[in-house]
């Protein structure tokens, strides 16, 4: 059997597995992973097919002290200066971008930055990059108080409401609740959701019916997403 092309869903699965997609195309494909188990399997099959390519990447040696840095981070001791500096820089850049956006829109005075370093436990933050018409959103999580804050500036207004999800790496999306279309939403996280809010988890916002997704899984378009990182 020889077709002219892969079925569209399989071609898309291959493109997502390779990381070729960006912007709205990527958002749409990710949404299908969440909503369609068959599509999710197609993506994972492509990853398996390509996995032997990892053999071709030559081994490289990181700094000799890297294990010590990891070991220290596991203890919750201060992370290395380099790492802290990098993520702080990334968060600051994201905040600056969000603040610049707020300035352009002149909707309200930009709230003071919420990303501050505290002794322990470290806070997490995620700039949620827009997919399409919405603006950048900034999420921050304070594990000490189990408080999640998310600030939105502009959002498509089509009668649906934004719902926030956390997607653990390689896992299923869990709803964190509905958020406001503009301004800051503060959400106290119950114990069962706290476990998901860790460094590396993905946050995503989809548009859902006002009462929330009827299925418990995202059903509407994803409008923003980002990765939680320690700041």
């Amino acid at each position: 059997m020889s077709a002219d092309a892969l079925p569209e869903h399989d071609a898309l699965a291959a493109e997502l597995a390779l990381g070729l997609l960006e912007g709205e195309e990527r958002a749409a494909a990710l949404r299908r992973v969440l909503a369609e188990p068959e599509f999710a399997r197609a993506v994972s099959d492509w990853r398996d097919r390509l996995a032997p390519l990892f053999d071709l990447v030559p081994d490289m040696a990181p700094s000799a002290d890297l294990w010590a840095r990891i070991d220290a981070a596991l203890d919750g001791r201060a992370a290395s200066p380099q790492r802290t500096g990098f993520w702080k820089g990334a968060a600051a850049a994201a905040l600056a971008a969000a603040a610049a956006l707020a300035g352009v829109l002149v909707l309200r005075p930009a709230p003071p930055p919420q990303i501050v370093t505290q002794p322990a436990p470290p806070r997490l933050a995620a700039p949620l990059m827009p997919e399409g018409a919405s603006g950048t959103m900034m999420a921050s999580y304070d594990p000490g108080h189990a408080m999640l804050r998310i600030r939105a500036e502009t959002m498509p207004d089509d009668g649906r409401m934004p719902e926030l999800w956390v997607i653990p790496e390689g896992g299923e999306p869990h709803s964190l609740g509905m958020i406001r279309q503009a301004g800051t939403t503060e959400m106290a996280m119950p114990a069962e959701l706290k476990a998901w809010l860790v460094d590396g988890a993905t946050l995503a916002v989809t548009l859902e019916p006002a009462t929330g997704s009827p299925t418990g899984k995202p059903t509407g378009p994803m409008i923003a997403s980002g990765t939680l990182t320690t700041v």
Binding site: M60, A61, L66, R83
Partner: peptide, 25 residues
């Protein structure tokens, strides 16, 4: 595994410092 994973990451990041941050992560 660290040498293999660092090879993969460094190839994509192109820069050691960033690659080590990712590896730790």
């Amino acid at each position: 595994t660290h040498a293999k994973l660092f090879g993969i990451i460094l190839r994509i990041c192109g820069e050691r410092q960033a690659a080590e941050d990712v590896l730790q992560d």
